[in-house]
């Protein structure tokens, strides 16, 4: 998959947020690629910069405060960071790159019917006449398994369940055949049985469309169920990336290992959880060396300098001075 030219290639991305109390280095030197038909899981704790990475691609940053200060983002080879805002809004957002946000209600307007909201982009951006836009809306709602969509076009968002609203938002995102889909915590607000439906839906959509997907999540179970490749983010940087099996079976970064040991798993009753001491550093004034050092059981004096990224297996790389050592 990575042999093909990637759909998305991010290199050295830095996105900073300028606040009164200081500069938040939300994304601080991120490299990522997503191939066609690939699902990349971007995992890590809240505040580690996952959403800001996704929003940087669409340049939907906090107004006046957020700014890409370095790096490159290429979509099918085309540089996005230097693209004029107008072109980005017209050709990229919602068209070549679509986003599903965590809370479906933020993406749906409560005063417009579902039919208007789903068919709108086909009419106004796609230039389809009314009847054809309506047919296209019915078609995508069918693809996300809304039962009898032709009867429900006149209904409003509150008349649908949480899981259905999330599927409608998904329908709007995939409607125009994006090359890249960014799904930011798409299942976090859902119950497990509905979450399993959403996972199956995303998997099927990807097989049908061949789009690349970035799945942002803090849930390692969801990431394992859906992703081909995993990138683990910590305090603004990627600390480990690799094929999903490698990362879950042979995690190489001490943070990834600690995270996997800290979550309860079905069938592991009675065992004490191995907690990670402390908390992540502030992104206003992060440590110069390894950002996990204050919590790392393997820390040595070399860790006072930021670790180089090294390969520990095929397509599997880690930013840790002690990554190569068997522990």
């Amino acid at each position: 998959m990575t042999a093909l030219a990637p759909v998305l290639a991010i290199e050295g991305l830095k996105t900073y947020i300028h606040l009164k109390r200081g500069v938040v280095r939300a994304v601080d030197g991120v490299d990522l690629t997503v191939g066609a038909g690939e699902t990349l899981g971007l995992v890590g704790e809240s505040g580690s910069g996952k959403s800001m990475t996704g929003l940087s691609i669409l340049r939907l940053l906090p107004k006046g405060a957020g700014k890409i200060v370095a790096g490159s983002i290429r979509l099918d080879g085309e540089e996005l960071t230097t693209l004029p805002e107008k072109v980005l809004a017209r050709d990229v957002r919602g068209r070549r790159v679509a986003m599903i946000a965590q809370d479906p209600m933020t993406s749906l307007n409560p005063v417009f019917s579902i039919g208007d909201q789903v068919s709108g982009p086909f009419r106004y951006h796609g230039g389809l006449p009314r009847q054809e836009a309506r047919a296209a809306a019915i078609d995508v709602l069918q693809r996300v398994r809304i039962p009898s969509p032709e009867k429900r076009l006149g209904d409003y968002p509150h008349q649908f369940s949480g899981g259905q609203r999330q599927r409608i938002v998904t329908a709007m995102a995939i409607g125009r055949g994006p090359r890249l889909l960014i799904a930011d915590e798409p299942t976090t607000a859902l119950d497990v049985t509905i979450q399993a439906q959403m996972i199956a839906l995303l998997r099927r959509l990807q097989q049908e469309s061949g789009a690349g997907i970035i799945l942002i999540t803090h849930d390692l179970g969801v990431a394992a169920s859906l992703c081909n490749r995993i990138a683990v983010m910590y305090a603004g940087r990627i600390v480990e990336t690799g094929p999903v099996r490698e990362v879950f079976r042979n995690p190489a970064h001490p943070y990834t290992r600690a995270l996997l040991a800290a979550i309860p798993k079905l069938g592991s009753r009675g065992r004490r959880l191995v907690a990670i001491p402390g908390q992540p550093p502030s992104l206003i004034d992060p440590p110069a060396g390894c950002r996990f050092a204050a919590r790392c059981p393997l820390k040595v004096s070399a860790c006072d300098a930021y670790p180089q990224t090294t390969a520990v297996g095929p397509n599997h790389s880690v930013a840790c001075w002690r990554a190569g050592e068997a522990v």
Binding site: S46, H218, L259, I263, P264, I276, P277, Q279
Partner: peptide, 10 residues
């Protein structure tokens, strides 16, 4: 956060 939950559960 996932990395904090285990502390509180313990």
């Amino acid at each position: 956060d996932v990395s904090i939950r285990a502390q509180v559960l313990n």
